[in-house]
Amino acid sequence: NKFNKEMRNAYWEILHLPNLNEEQKNAFIQSLYDDPSQSANLLAEAKKLNDAQA
């Protein structure tokens, strides 16, 4: 299933973003579980936030 793979990839990438705190990571990961079809968008948002907090 495409979403499972996308979701897993997004999950791991978000988990390893160095500039997000636990609360931010948890919020993105919760959103992933709530709507796996948004994995790519959530990952993009997480990366933007990560870069902004660098």
Results as ranks from 00 to 15, higher is better:
Arg8Ala: 15
Ala46Met: 01
Glu6Arg: 01
Asp35Trp: 06
Ala10Gln: 02
Pro18His: 06
Gln53Ala: 06
Ile29Val: 12
Leu49Asn: 06
Asp51Gly: 13
Met7Thr: 08
Trp12Glu: 08
Lys2Trp: 12
His16Ser: 12
Asn19Glu: 08
Leu20Trp: 00
Lys25His: 03
Glu22Gly: 14
Asn26Ala: 15
Pro36Gln: 07
Tyr11Ala: 07
Asn1Asp: 15
Ala10Pro: 00
Asn1Leu: 04
Leu17Lys: 03
Asn21Ser: 11
Asn1Lys: 02
Trp12Met: 05
Ala54Gly: 06
Ala10Ile: 04
Gln30Lys: 11
Lys47Trp: 08
Ser37Gly: 05
Asn41Trp: 05
Leu43Trp: 02
Asn26His: 08
Gln30His: 15
Leu32Gln: 02
Gln53His: 11
Lys2Thr: 10
Glu22Ala: 13
His16Ala: 12
Met7Glu: 13
Asn9Asp: 14
His16Thr: 04
Glu22Pro: 03
Ala54Glu: 08
Gln24Ala: 08
Leu49Ser: 08
Asn21Pro: 05
Glu22Ser: 15
His16Pro: 01
Trp12Thr: 10
Arg8Thr: 10
His16Glu: 06
Asn4Phe: 05
Asn41Pro: 06
Lys25Thr: 11
His16Phe: 09
Phe3Met: 03
Asn21Trp: 11
Gln24Ile: 04
Glu6Leu: 04
Gln38Gly: 07
Leu43Ala: 12
Ala46Asp: 00
Ala46Val: 03
Leu42Asp: 01
Gln53Asp: 07
Gln38Trp: 10
Ala10Arg: 02
Ile29Ser: 14
Ile29Ala: 09
Lys25Phe: 06
Asn19Arg: 03
Gln30Ala: 15
Asn26Ile: 10
Gln24Asn: 04
Asn4Gly: 02
Arg8Pro: 02
Lys47Ser: 04
Glu22Ile: 06
Ser39Pro: 03
Lys47Val: 05
Trp12Val: 10
Phe3Arg: 00
Asn9Gln: 13
Ile29Pro: 00
Tyr33Arg: 04
Pro36Arg: 04
Glu45Pro: 00
Pro18Gly: 09
Gln53Arg: 02
Lys25Leu: 09
Leu15Gln: 09
Ala40Val: 15
Glu45Phe: 08
Lys5Thr: 03
Lys47Arg: 05
Asn4His: 09
Glu23Leu: 08
Asp34Gly: 07
Phe3Tyr: 08
Ala54Lys: 01
Lys48Gln: 14
Leu43Arg: 11
Ser37Thr: 10
Ile14Gly: 00
Asp35Asn: 13
Ala27Thr: 10
Pro18Val: 07
Ser31Val: 06
Asp51Arg: 09
Gln30Trp: 13
Asp51Ile: 10
Pro36Ala: 06
Ala44Asp: 13
Leu15Arg: 11
Lys2Ile: 07
Leu32Lys: 00
